[in-house]
Design a protein around this nucleic acid. Structure first.
Lengths: 224, 224, 224, 224
DNA sequence: AATGAATGAGACTTCATTCAT
DNA sequence: CATGAATGAAGTCTCATTCAT
């Protein structure tokens, strides 16, 4: 979804330039479909612009230019600039969570799941390099969305940890501490990403020894 | 252009003087003292404004109003708004590092030092609630300063960890991994602070069980 | 006077740095002399600054920096910035007129005097490259002074032309036309200077054929 | 403020569009036409403001007020204030050249052409009294445009003079001197205009004896 | 008098939002 | 609805002048 800007635009253009096309499947789009396409294009454009220039430089003019629509059109889809920015992380964040879930679904143990999730996070970032700024600048520019996202991710961690704790696999036994551990893992991932996972756009593969360090701490610090 | 003028003036400035060597009581401050006072007031005002409203709303007008000086005065002390913002974290960051160093200097072991440092960080935040935003929004608004600060903090961690590793106290043995561990600790602290350390201005005492969770992971995950 | 900035500054510095100097002649200057020195330094500085950056960029700060005095000092000598700018052309303009008069005083005929004056103007500009802007930008930035200067120069021309006319040496006979001719000569000189007389600072020698063209027109167009 | 602007604009628009016209096609202007109108209004406003107050006082606010548009609108048409100022002389200068060409096209000889051109210049100034400052202050405020304009005008003179020289009608025979002569004519015209052609706004008719003086010099000084 | 920092009015420019077509 | 130009509030920075030392 993050990199669909071009496709979306291309799609629209094609339609316009050749109204008599006999394309069997893509006949004229309905109104609703067109609207949905534009909305999607605006999201994709916003993602790209925020990813490249940050929230603070994500001007409406830039987003609409990127989406190949007029500036005024923006306000047919969003109440305000902030409205779109508030929706950006939820939209893209869901995709990330789904991606990670999918990638870690076949784990044999909680520890393995953690490693797979960890790797998947960086895999996702490699595919969607815009996500880093969309996620981490949201604390400043879309705080509500950020907090929700954070809580959702934390809940995921806590659920897993809880299961492990109930099986007696954890070094901690205080239920309250589970969320603290979750936050620590999230923070650790954030900083490793910041430091080792972002060499320019297009990303870079995370060094294997970073994964080693992370898993060493996870295995020894959290699990027995 | 402006710079030429400034340089010329700076060159002429005789900053030495102090002919009134022993005037200890003097109600009136010397010019240099006044200047220093205003500079400090601007920094303090900026810290407060950034802490309360964030970098993105730290307008020059707000800062100067807070410091009770005219807007133009600002530019006698800083090249530009960004110039001040760039200096803010270094200035306050130093104070934090000094505070933590002082608080953890009497630790008997590396692990104890880590706990004392961890607690001191939150102590510092309680005293300087503005610091949270000054530090963490800097990634967006003063990236260079942020990176420097981050590296300085990381270096501190690495130094400690290295010592421990050389004594065979660590679970990892790859020197490269030390920095990864440092980043993880920093990230963990950041997120714990975000989640548990900031209930409104004035801060809140960190729950003891958060410290427990943190130290459990540190002890089991990093140290043998 | 135009190039005394350095000297003036050196003078002050020397005095300051070695109050016990036994220099036999330059003992302490009187108050009045000091004032006169500063005023001269400000004029010289203004000339240099205007010559290099134009009136519109001749900020008080630049002028005082160039003169090595404090900004506030400026207002002990001039009512306002405009006040100095208004006095600049009269001051330097007098020097130019004197220079030209001196250079053309030994002419055997009016035509020869004109050639000598013409050459002397460019000679003066070579020595004082700042003069071009001081003079010609004054039309915009010190219009009153400009007009006065212009009239003074025109009067000089008219006086000469009148003499020639009375001797029947001119092609025109209407007294009113004398001033028109004077203005034409001034305009011609201005434009030749603009086009041929100013290659960078330091000036350039006027090509001889430009003088030829000028004198051809003067000889054939004005004199019989 | 918004209201004022709107009303003002509405007023202008209505007036311009001529509701009583039988406009066969369309009462309302197309968008492109409106844009062109605003651009023209901005140029006209700039010309008036510069003519009255000079480049140095031609603030964006003044220009837009004069054009009855909002300040922000300015930047839909020009990159910056300087951008407009740079375009002003080329725009108006072309009009002047066309005017003069038209007025002197039916001349029987080069000398006559020169007289007609000379008169036409002042005619143009009478119609466009703003042109004087637009042209002559450009040396300071839009130097590039000024130089281009100057060169264009000089080329025109040189072309005419060259023709005459080839026919042996000139007193000079050195091709290089042609441009010098052109500059002299331009300077002469400038100064005559400054001294005799601008009594307040609305201009004044140039005294006939000024034309006589000019033509006497041209005929005797340049042509045989 | 000299100093040089403080002042604040004022200029330019940006950009989210509105609105007429 | 889409369009894209118009709007004007708001923010940054400059610089002549003032003023306390």
């Amino acid at each position: 979804m993050l990199n669909d800007a071009k496709k979306a635009r291309a799609g629209r253009t094609r339609e316009v330039e050749d109204p008599s096309a006999q394309a069997p499947k893509r006949t004229k789009l309905t109104r609703a479909q067109k609207k949905e396409q534009i909305r999607a294009a605006l999201f994709a454009a916003a993602a790209k612009v925020v990813g490249e220039h940050g929230y603070s430089n994500a001007q409406v003019a830039m987003i609409t230019a990127q989406a190949s629509v007029a500036q005024g059109t923006f306000y047919n889809y969003f109440e305000s600039q902030q409205d779109l920015l508030d929706q950006l992380l939820p939209t893209v964040g869901q995709a990330m969570l789904a991606f990670i879930k999918e990638a870690s679904s076949d784990a044999a143990s909680e520890v393995e799941r953690e490693e797979k999730s960890f790797r998947a996070f960086f895999e996702f970032l490699k595919i969607n390099p815009d996500f880093y700024r969309i996620l981490y600048e949201a604390e400043v520019f879309a705080p509500e969305a950020y907090q929700k996202h954070n809580e959702a991710v934390a809940r995921g961690y806590v659920r897993v940890l809880e299961r492990a704790m109930n099986r007696g696999e954890l070094r901690i036994s205080d239920k309250r501490e589970l969320e603290a551990v979750a936050q620590m893992l999230m923070g650790a991932r954030h900083y490793l990403c910041m430091r080792f996972g972002r060499r320019g756009r297009g990303g870079i593969s995370l060094p294997e020894w970073v994964v080693d360090a992370y898993m060493t701490v996870v295995k020894g610090g959290i699990y027995r």
